[in-house]
């Protein structure tokens, strides 16, 4: 029974990773077709680094992911502190608001934002050319916010509220108390939220697709356009490189989480 479970798990992982292996192999392929290996080459990687267009797209995606995750982290952490102080009906109402972008189908979120931007452009700015970095940033901050809030809230619940009182008794101003006592406690949640927001933003296709403009496009949106034609194999090289970047980020996140869990354990033991 146990062995059966392990074999099954292996097969499922094979299913999940087979397409990625195809892309990995395709990145070294001397032909265009993913299903035919015509010989080993590194030229796809060289092509990628020589192609200013795709580097531009990659830079765009990173700029958008970094700025939107930073903005969402700041706004979301403040919001989590505020929500934590709320009780009863008000808290439920705000949490419902937080859940809307999480449960709403992405295509509906994308469509609804595009309608809003068109409306604002036409009636307030008198222009049809509203789409661009600004609209993408707003859209990404909006769908990133819930992830930040949901990863900071549990940390707030774990934090002993008398810590802030103690800090103030010992002469801290509320602001000092926050930066010296609360923030270190919340830090793992904030970082986890920021990283999650960053990866969601980096890989978002559907919502970006409805809010981008050709002047400022992102990688996933452009890949969508490209996959309607035969895809230049340098994109497989880029996928492979991104895979390892994301792998490193996720391992880093794991280490932070593991350290935090150990810290919580120690705290529990000390409490006993």
């Amino acid at each position: 029974m146990k062995r059966l479970g392990k074999v099954w798990t292996f097969l499922v992982f094979l299913f999940l990773y087979a397409p990625m292996i195809v892309l990995f192999v395709g990145s070294f392929n001397d032909g265009r077709d993913l299903s035919e290996f015509e010989g080993f080459t590194l030229s796809n990687y060289l092509d990628f680094f020589a192609d200013s267009g795709s580097l531009r797209l990659l830079a765009n995606s990173f700029i958008l992911a970094i700025s939107s995750s930073l903005a969402a982290t700041l706004l979301g952490t403040l919001a989590a502190l505020g929500i934590h102080a709320m009780r009863g009906r008000m808290r439920r109402a705000v949490m419902t608001l937080t859940n809307i972008p999480l449960v709403n189908p992405e295509i509906v979120t994308g469509v609804s934002l595009s309608l809003l931007f068109v409306f604002i452009g036409r009636s307030m700015l008198g222009s049809d050319q509203v789409f661009g970095f600004g609209t993408l940033l707003i859209a990404h901050v909006t769908f990133n916010l819930p992830y930040v809030i949901l990863s900071v809230m549990p940390k707030l619940r774990q934090t002993d509220s008398s810590l802030m009182d103690a800090a103030q008794d010992l002469g801290c101003t509320p602001l000092q108390g926050f930066f010296k006592v609360m923030l270190p406690e919340l830090w793992p949640g904030i970082i986890a939220g920021a990283i999650m927001a960053f990866t969601m933003s980096l890989d978002d296709f559907v919502i970006s697709y409805f809010t981008y403009s050709p002047n400022f496009s992102t990688l996933p949106v452009e890949i969508y356009a490209i996959t309607r034609k035969p895809v230049p194999p340098m994109y497989y090289a880029m996928f492979t490189l991104l895979f390892f970047v994301i792998l490193v980020v996720m391992i880093g996140m794991n280490v932070i989480q593991a350290r935090d869990e150990r810290r919580q354990e120690r705290k529990k033991l000390r409490g006993v």
């Binding site: 892309l23 077709d33 980096l202 890989d203 296709f205």
Partner: peptide, 14 residues
């Protein structure tokens, strides 16, 4: 976290 567009394309190639 990896481009689902390219992964789906690779699934098609399979």
């Amino acid at each position: 976290c990896m481009s689902f567009l390219l992964r789906t394309l690779a699934l098609v190639a399979l």
